[in-house]
Design a protein around this nucleic acid. Structure first.
Lengths: 210, 210, 210, 210
DNA sequence: CATGAATGAGCCTTCATTCAT
DNA sequence: AATGAATGAAGGCTCATTCAT
């Protein structure tokens, strides 16, 4: 019957969307109060459902946390990796793109809060932390190292320890991700993410010239 | 006299030492598990006292947290500021000293865990966060900006946005402070604080040349 | 319909009944052990619920105490006031009714324990005490004074200080309320509430004759 | 030696006075906050000693409570009994003296708080309550009954149930003892102990005439 | 599927009591 | 005798989790 059909359809839609809605709500709250201080009651409220319903989608609070972290940045790494690989330009161009996109990602979208979360809960969730370290941090590092290596090979950059050079460039972006998620920090310290990224890149690129 | 000295020594000495012992124990645990997930029972155990004794020295868990944060880095900022002021050398020398000392401080002493703590609890302790931002972060920023400004004035450095330049140099150190307090991060990502600081400084200094 | 009535009956009914069930349990225990010495665990057990459930209905122990006190006698004052107003008889008749009802109320129902509670906790809950003083004690005084005043006006009673006269009659009833809530007192001191009320009234009425 | 002598003397004096000082301090606080809510820390402070010193004089908090109650009124009953026995006058005179003295005692001295204490803690200290009931309340009752009985025998009073008649007269005094120990009660309800006693006596005596 | 009432383990905090000085 | 630092048992309160509806 049509009625039944529609009924089911409506629920199906919800059912499909729910997990992500919950994850979004959880990330928002985790980002502000941290894992332990966030009540599932509040997550449910934020997601517009009841507390019991949470347990239909996540076995417990920890599982929700894992989904928040793993679902978060992972989806944004691959596209960036692809873009880098597909791109044909100078190492400088690639880095500029990388830095710009990354900066925008962590300072303007909710996933920017995930680094803060990982830092906070590293001691309590070794698995999640290891996952994040390997699947996000390390992959970003590798990607950037490969670009720098290309630049060195092409004579654009002088020879420097690659990992350390990469981190010199990544750290300020990363710091922005943290700062924008600390109430009062960005404003009081007059942080302008785009400008920060640009100046960092400017100094770094000049410092890397052969 | 010795006798007098030793008289009522046990308790007196303890009473004086206790607060710092407790703070050290608390910092150690807060650093690993975070504020909420740290039980005062464990802090007491770590400090070698009973739970009740905590309350002879700190009115509640929050007060302990504040002491941990405020007592922590603040004592290390002033000496560094003094050393910088007293120092008569090139901006490069000053920065090298600053970076070296700061890197050692945050990667080899317990206070290096405080940034992580602040990040984690920024949403829950606005006052502590504001204090830390103004009395630690901002003061470090200012000190570094003043050095850079000097360098620009002396013709050592080219003109760049000062705050952003300062942060480009500070961020990697700061990141180290976080990394060494995330179990498994430093090792797996092959982080070598001294080397990282050196490479960062190397690139940055070259990038700042006029 | 019956079906609807029964539907979700168990919880709904409970949810409605719970607060009063808890209040009753709390009054029972508060009356015996006092506020501080009564554990919420025991209140919960007495009410047939778990400790956590208490907090679904009362924000904390103090809120429960207030409800116990405020919900208790207040409901019994108004009807008595109405009855007095509606009654058309001699002042003596009115007083007899008043004294009889009041005596029965405080010596045979749980609310008789509330005076004891108020006395015990007056120093710790000034607000509750003030409320009780104004809304219960003072109203009872006023009611009785108005009756006596009527008696004086009608020539039934001689002229005496009204408040003091009223209290002379009320105090023995009040004392009964306390005595029946002190284990061993009523029996050992051979107190018979009805008889006590009657004798008190007898002496008082005779003493008030013009 | 003189020095030692004086030393000991000084301490002896203190040692003798201490228990009563502590009892006075405890009564003062028990009267306001009740037994459970009174901290021994505060009792010690009020008595001008340290917490540990309390335990040199009282084995525990309960022992202190017992001393407070038992030492309190008992000393005042015997003299009154003696005075009554020694007195040679009409029953009315005796009662007037009794009521006047008792009213003054419970409304102007600290022992007036003891009834409140007994009422509050009856459920927690059956022994103390029983003691108080037998040694204080019952003895007062008996004394008053004996006076009334005398008055009946002498034709001063009509025949009435003795205990009940006694309580009719005692209850208002007793109520005053409670009221003056309830912050805000005496004032707001415009209680004047002497006047209350007088009016009560006036009505009662007239009501008892043959 | 969804709800929200109910649960109870866990943690912070207090305070009577002890004991080294 | 006096102190006050230290203890730890006890209790108020929270919140993740369950389950009857």
């Amino acid at each position: 019957m049509n009625t039944v059909q529609k009924h089911k359809a409506k629920w199906s839609r919800r059912k499909d969307a729910r997990p992500q809605e919950i994850i979004d709500a959880a990330l928002k709250l985790f980002a502000v109060k941290g894992f332990a201080a966030t009540r599932l009651d509040d997550v449910a409220k934020e997601a517009g459902i009841s507390k019991g319903t949470l347990y239909l989608y996540f076995s417990d609070k920890e599982a929700l946390f894992k989904q928040v972290v793993q679902g978060g940045m992972i989806d944004n790494i691959a596209p960036l990796e692809q873009a880098i690989k597909a791109h044909t330009g100078s190492a400088e161009d690639l880095l500029r793109m990388f830095v710009t996109h990354m900066t925008a990602l962590v300072t303007t979208t909710p996933v920017g809060a995930i680094p803060k979360l990982i830092i906070s809960e590293a001691g309590n969730f070794p698995n999640v932390t290891a996952f994040y370290r390997d699947e996000v941090v390390f992959r970003i590092h590798k990607t950037m190292v490969s670009i720098i290596k290309k630049g060195v090979a092409d004579g654009e950059f002088r020879q420097v320890p690659l990992m350390e050079a990469a981190r010199s460039l990544l750290a300020p972006i990363f710091m922005l991700a943290l700062a924008v998620n600390m109430p009062g920090f960005k404003e009081k310290l007059e942080m302008n993410p785009a400008k920060q990224a640009e100046v960092t890149l400017d100094i770094w690129l000049k410092g890397m010239r052969p």
